[in-house]
């Protein structure tokens, strides 16, 4: 399946991926509006790891054998059998953080305001991950595997 892959060699740690991840999942699909007006602004579903000079962004790997899907106590976490995308049905999620306990990538974010697990959905709505689209250095690619 197509996933987002990081090229750590060319990442400069600007965190624009975080900014655009937030924007993409905000009710406003505009950076300024998302930051200025969204009272319930979502958390970034990306972790930018840094230990200078190294940096890269890390998001859900949509694992073949996804531990979060198996461990989820409510069935909120699902892997689409066709696309392979792992998504959290936030109506079912009760915020128990069992997914946080089992995700070996640490890629599931706790949205403590809404008490739901928040994770990369590859920007299902727009069809193209916003982090990839807006990475100025092309340090993120969306492809079928490297």
């Amino acid at each position: 399946m197509k996933k987002v892959y990081a090229k750590e060699e060319v990442c400069v740690g600007c965190k624009l991926c975080e900014v655009y991840c937030i924007t993409s999942h905000s009710r406003y699909k505009d950076v300024l509006k998302a930051y200025k007006f969204d009272s319930n602004r979502p958390a970034p579903r990306i972790v930018v790891e840094e230990n200078r000079p190294l940096s890269f962004s890390l998001q859900c790997r949509h694992c073949d054998d996804a531990p979060c899907v198996k461990a989820c106590i409510t069935g909120a976490m699902q892997k689409d059998p066709v696309t392979g995308v792992v998504t959290c049905d936030t109506d079912k999620c009760v915020g128990c953080w069992t997914c946080v306990l089992v995700c070996g990538f640490g890629a599931i974010v706790r949205d403590t305001n809404n008490k739901i697990a928040s994770k990369c959905d590859l920007c299902a709505e727009s069809g193209e991950p916003a982090c990839v689209k807006n990475c100025p250095n092309e340090a993120l690619v969306y492809e079928g595997g490297i």
Partner: peptide, 17 residues
């Protein structure tokens, strides 16, 4: 996090290798 992993371990996991 993964930033502290040895490069080959990090890459093998993050790049599905």
């Amino acid at each position: 996090g993964y930033v502290y992993f040895p490069k080959d371990l990090r890459k093998s996991k993050m790049l599905d290798l």
